[in-house]
Structures are given as structure tokens and as C-alpha cells.
């Protein structure tokens, strides 16, 4: 096999890759570093790497009621919406995957097409509706709205996950006298669990990161963490850079916790394709 192991092209390729890898994480690491700096160490024309670290920004953030309320709202709204997505989305995905009928394609397309809807087009009427029924600026309104997202995303990702479960396993269970529901509970769910966990984690990240709908459906009580974080930057000209950086770090941590699950999910999706 004629494959040059060295050469300018290869070396250049490696350099480009290394640069891309650096670019992927450096801005975030820099933000994390800035969150440990006093303002004087941030507002410098030459970036400072050596400085006296401070926990003042982080403790300020964690001590603020608005941030804690935002954190609470985000956790509750996203947690409940994901739960609703799991309860309603997984069984429906299983049925579409295992009991295909002539609508299966249309159902899948409908679920995907929900993603085409511009968020503004959903948020404006919902704001008016929630105002009229007196639920504007409540977590309940946010949860119902986010459920649309979580159900559709979980369904969309879980259909292929259930299809990947070997049919023979389920058929053997039927022969053993399991009913349709217990096959779902005892066979399909456990076997597909890893891929399904990826789908669920993905839906969580999606709603945790959601901004526009939360911005339009909350004014004070139901603000989620992204909204609170974005408001910290609007405190006049005297931008508290360190605090802002700390809030970005806090906001980014939960999705990053799922890095392992999600990259495992990606791998399993493509391993299925290979076989």
C-alpha cells in the first residue's frame, strides 16, 4: 500500500487539526479562567495568564436570588418536560418502529416538521394564549411548551433506536408467552436503553439551551437560567466581566455533563449503520 507516512501535506493536515482542536475548547477555557479573575485582570490589552485567582465572581453568582431562581426554574422546567417527553415519546416511538402501518412515514415526517416551525411563530401566539388563561410567566406554561420539543425530539431519535433492537429477541419473547406490552417493558426498553439515554440526554440539552421561547413566556417569576445570564450583561456600561464569565460557566456546565453519554450515543448510531 502506497501511503506516505510523512510529508508536508500530512504535517500541514495535522497542524490544521490541532489548531481546530485548540479552537474548539480554548475560548471556553479562557472564559472559565476569566471567571476566576478580578476585573482588573480581565480589562487588559494584553491577555493575562498569570493572576491572583479569586472566587468572588462565583460566590457572587451563587449568592444571587435571581440566579438561584433561574437555576431552579431551568431544572424544574427542563426536568418535567423531559419526563413528559419520555413518558409520551418513547412508547409512541416504539409503536412506530415495531408496528409500521401506512401512516408510519407520515407520523415521522410530522414529528420532524415540528422542528421547521420558527420559534417566534410559536412563542408569539403562546404568549397571548398564556396571558389570556392567566398562566403567563409560570413554570406550567413553560413546561407545556417545552413538552412539544421534548416529545418530538425523543420520538424522532428513539424510532431508529428501537428499530435497531434485533427483531429475533422480541419474537423469542412472544413465543415465550410475553404480551405486547411486556415485550416493550422487559425487552425493547432495556435492550435499547443506551441509545435511548442518548436521545433523552439530547432532548434535555435542547430545552436547557432554549432561549427565545423562555424569553417571551417569562417576565419575572419563570425566568430560566439562560435569560438570567443574558440579563447580567445589561447592567449599564460598567460590565462586570468576571461575574458574566462565571454565569456563562454555570450555564454551560449541565449540558457538558452529558458529553460522555452523547458521544457514546453518536458512536452507537454509527456502529449500527456499519453492520
Amino acid at each position: 500500500m502506497r501511503r506516505p507516512r510523512t510529508g508536508v501535506g500530512r504535517l500541514l493536515g495535522k497542524a490544521v487539526l490541532a489548531f481546530a482542536g485548540f479552537m474548539a475548547v480554548f475560548p471556553l477555557l479562557w472564559t472559565a479562567l476569566n471567571s476566576l479573575k478580578n476585573n482588573v485582570d480581565i480589562i487588559t490589552r494584553v491577555p493575562r495568564v498569570v493572576f491572583t485567582p479569586t472566587l468572588a465572581n462565583i460566590s457572587y453568582i451563587l449568592g444571587r436570588d435571581s440566579v438561584l431562581t433561574g437555576l431552579y426554574n431551568s431544572v424544574v422546567a427542563c426536568g418535567v418536560a423531559v419526563l413528559v417527553g419520555v413518558v409520551l415519546g418513547l412508547p409512541a416511538a416504539y409503536a412506530v418502529a415495531r408496528y409500521p402501518n401506512r401512516w408510519a412515514g407520515d407520523i415521522q415526517f410530522f414529528v420532524l416538521s415540528l422542528r421547521f416551525l420558527p420559534p417566534v411563530a410559536v412563542a408569539i401566539p403562546l404568549m397571548v394564549i398564556w396571558l389570556q388563561v392567566g398562566l403567563y410567566d409560570t413554570l406550567a406554561a413553560l413546561i407545556v411548551t417545552y413538552s412539544l420539543l421534548t416529545i418530538s425530539v425523543i420520538m424522532w431519535l428513539a424510532i431508529p433506536a428501537f428499530q435497531a433492537v434485533p427483531k429475533e429477541v422480541e419474537e423469542a419473547a412472544f413465543v415465550d408467552g410475553y404480551g405486547a406490552y411486556s415485550v416493550f417493558w422487559r425487552i425493547a426498553l432495556p435492550v435499547a436503553a443506551r441509545s435511548l439515554a442518548g436521545a433523552v440526554a439530547f432532548s434535555f440539552v435542547l430545552v436547557w439551551n432554549e432561549f427565545l421561547i423562555a424569553l417571551m413566556l417569562s417576565s419575572s417569576n419563570a425566568k430560566t437560567l439562560p435569560i438570567v445570564a443574558s440579563e447580567l450583561s445589561q447592567q449599564g456600561m460598567n460590565v462586570p466581566w468576571g461575574i458574566l464569565n462565571a454565569s456563562v460557566v454555570l450555564l454551560s456546565l449541565p449540558p457538558l455533563l452529558f458529553l460522555g453519554v452523547l458521544s457514546g450515543f453518536l458512536n452507537s448510531v454509527f456502529r449500527q449503520k456499519k453492520t
Binding site: A24, V25, L28, V205, W208, N209, F211, P226, A229, S230, V248, L251, S252, P255, L256, F258, L259, L262, S263, L266
Partner: peptide
């Protein structure tokens, strides 16, 4: 994969 997991706001 890290950048895409970040909230857009972050």
C-alpha cells in the same frame, strides 16, 4: 462535540 453542547447564549 463540546461547542455544540453549549447553550447558544453561552
Amino acid at each position: 462535540i463540546i461547542p455544540v453542547l453549549l447553550p447558544r447564549v453561552s
